[in-house]
Every structure is written in structure tokens, then in C-alpha cells.
Computed example of a mutant assay.
Amino acid sequence: MSDASEGPEGAVADAYKGNWVDRYAPEAFKPYFRLSRLDRPIGTWLLLLPCWWGLFLSIAATGDPRFFDIWIFAGCGIGAILMRGAGCTWNDITDRGIDGSVARTASRPIPSGAVSAKQALGWAVAQSLTAFLILLTFNWAAIGLGVLSLLPVAVYPFAKRFTYWPQIFLGLAFNWGALLVWTAHGGSLGWPAVLLYVAGMAWTLFYDTIYAHQDKEDDALIGVKSTARLFGDATPAALRVFLVACVLLMGLAVIVASPAGGTLALVIALGAPLAMGAHMLWQLGRVKLDDHDRLLSLFRSNRDAGLLAVLFFAAACLV
């Protein structure tokens, strides 16, 4: 893993080398952009992709694409950047007493002194309010779901203090978009969206358990809990369970949705869980629990896993 001291001043240890924030952002904004993880876009993708699953599966199910869906698609992208940024900023505020004791997080803006907790709070509020303006363009049912999503976002940073399953709380927050966007398109919540949501939670347990193994030694020293610490050397077996749950639940979501394009659309949509599952199986075959660079690389590869599902759901809309 790269060391922050090898990169530009103020760079965060696990950021992409040569990322645009380090290279091009104005100096005054760099600490705030780093708080929002704009130098590490994988989290934005992981928040965004379930939104797009919900949108395209809803369109495939109803056979009723609308012009407003273009805005839903784009609005999800902007909203994911903003809400992931707000959530990460809130996480860093609540973890400011912990991050300085963990090698991977000690270089973040608050523990490094680049931004105060008060400044970070103002930044979190600004991002949240901007995202709320986007949410207001959706229907009332979706707006209500968007407001409810703040609950798991608020709780998640504290979960690792009282449970070995903080990844469940992350999954509750990160996959909420499947519920919200299904509702934004169709006007009401449906069982396919709920199944897609739970499938996304299994996916989150899969990728974030891989990610958490990077910090397991530091976490044990400071008393922070995670599924990585819970499973230990048995992690590959747990990952297999999460993989199978994700594939089965996503497949069931497709079947319950019954794409309007008939059998061909159903077959295409069922390619989503199969292709995504194949990618997750590839990841599982490459896991080395003590190889931090590989763990980070595999975690980041979940963007491609989630995009495979998006592509198949989108293709099912064309039939």
C-alpha cells in the first residue's frame, strides 16, 4: 500500500496515485475533497450502482421508459457523489479519535490537522443540503425514502463500536438507492426492489469484509469490531455465503419483477446476477487475507462487478 509521505502534501494513504484531487484541485479545497473521498471514487460507485440497478430493473419490469428517467439516471450520479461525500465526512467526524491510531487512516484530513471537526461538519451539511435539492425533484414517495436513508447513514459510523457486523449497517445505507430509485420511477415500492436491496446488502458484506482485513490488526488493538475480525481465517467460507446470497436474491428480484419484454427480457435480466456472481467468484479465488495491496485491489474491482449487473438490466429494457 502506498505511503502518504510518498505522494503530494496532504495526500491520503489509500488514495489512487496521481488522482485528480492531488494533481489539479485548488489547494484550499483539497482537504474538503479528500474528506469527501473524491480522491477515492470507488465508494461513490458502490453507492451509485444499486441506484442504477433499481432504475433499469424497474423500467424492464414496467416496459415504460420515460423521459424523466434520464434525469433520474443523472441525478443518481450527482447525488451519489454528494451523499457519499457527506457520509464519509460524517464518518471522519465521528472517528476522529480513532483514525489517528490506524495506519491507513492517520493521514485523513481531520486526524492530520488539515481540517477541524467544525469545518468538516459545515462541509457535511453543505453536501447534504445540495443532495436534498436533487431529491426534491423526485416524487413524494421517493423523497420520503430519501429522508429515511439518513438513519442508517447516521448510525453506521458508531456500529463498529458495538457489533462485529458494522458491514450490515453499511449495507443498509449503501444499497438504499435500489429502493429509492425503483420508487422514483414507478411511484411506489415493490418486492423486486426489496429483494434487490437485500442482495446489495449481501454484496456489501462481501466486498467490505475483504476491505476490512486491511485494518484488522489495528482494529484489534483499539477495540474496533468488524466482520474481518469476526471471521478471521474462516473469511473465505463467509464470503462464499455472501456471494451465493447476493446471486440468489438478485435472481429472485428479477423473477418477481417479471420483465415486460417476456422470456427473452427475463433471460437477459437473469444474466445480471450470473455475471456479477462470476466476478465475485473470481475475486474469491484471488483473496489473500494478509496481502493489503491485493485486498484493496479486489475491493476496488467491485465497481466492475456492479456494472456488469447494470449492463444486463439495461439490456433487458431494450427488448
Rank of each mutant, 00 (worst) to 15 (best):
M1G: 11
A4H: 11
S5H: 10
S5W: 04
A13M: 14
A13F: 10
N19C: 14
V21R: 02
D22N: 04
R23L: 04
A28G: 03
F33K: 10
F33V: 05
L35G: 11
L35V: 06
L35E: 09
L35M: 12
R40I: 08
T44L: 12
W45D: 01
L47M: 04
C51Q: 05
W52Y: 12
W53D: 07
G54S: 04
L57Y: 03
I59S: 09
A61M: 09
G63S: 02
D64T: 13
F68G: 15
D69K: 10
D69I: 14
I70Q: 11
W71P: 03
W71I: 08
I72C: 03
R84K: 01
T89W: 06
W90I: 11
W90R: 14
I93W: 07
G97D: 13
T105M: 05
A106K: 11
A106M: 05
P111F: 00
S112V: 12
A117H: 06
K118A: 15
A120L: 09
S128D: 06
L129T: 08
I134Q: 12
L135V: 15
L135A: 14
L136W: 11
T137H: 13
F138V: 12
N139Q: 03
L145Y: 01
L150T: 15
R161M: 09
W165M: 09
P166A: 04
Q167M: 01
I168A: 13
F169I: 07
G171L: 14
N175T: 06
L179Q: 00
L180V: 12
W182K: 08
W182G: 02
H185A: 07
H185T: 09
G186S: 03
G186K: 02
G187Y: 08
G190L: 06
V194L: 03
L196W: 00
V198D: 00
V198Y: 00
A199T: 12
A199N: 11
G200V: 04
G200K: 12
D208L: 10
H213V: 03
D218Q: 13
I222H: 01
V224C: 13
T227C: 08
L230E: 07
F231D: 15
A238F: 12
R240G: 12
C246V: 05
L249F: 07
A253D: 00
V254D: 01
I255N: 03
I255D: 07
V256Q: 02
G262S: 02
G262D: 09
T263I: 05
T263Q: 02
T263F: 01
L266T: 15
I268G: 01
L270N: 03
A275Q: 04
A278F: 14
H279F: 08
H279A: 09
L281P: 01
G285A: 03
R286A: 10
K288F: 06
D291G: 15
R294K: 15
L296K: 04
L298Q: 07
L298P: 05
L308N: 00
V310D: 00
A314S: 05
A314F: 06
